[in-house]
């Protein structure tokens, strides 16, 4: 079963075992600009996603 990634209303599937930093690279996101959360826990970029887990990427950048 793949893992699910959610970012700004969009959803994509990645293989279980994929690291958060690989997801960020795939999406062209800087690790400085987003926070990664799995369930209720914040995780660092070396975290490997497990089967069926949902990774939520939260933007840290605001402007104006």
């Amino acid at each position: 079963m793949p893992a699910v990634v959610k970012f700004r209303g969009k959803t994509l599937e990645v293989e279980a075992g994929t690291k958060v930093e690989d997801v960020l690279a795939m999406m062209g996101l800087s690790r400085e600009g987003v926070i990664a959360r799995v369930g209720t826990k914040l995780v660092t970029e070396d975290y490997r996603l497990r089967d069926g887990e949902t990774l939520e990427l939260i933007s840290a950048i605001s402007g104006g």
């Binding site: 600009g33 950048i61 402007g63 104006g64």
Partner: peptide
């Protein structure tokens, strides 16, 4: 939500550029 008037704000582009350097 972001401030509806801040879409495309230069400050966001500058922050993203600095984050690329920081990376």
């Amino acid at each position: 939500l972001e401030c509806p008037f801040s879409a495309g704000a230069t400050s966001i582009a500058l922050k993203e550029a600095l984050n690329r350097i920081e990376e």
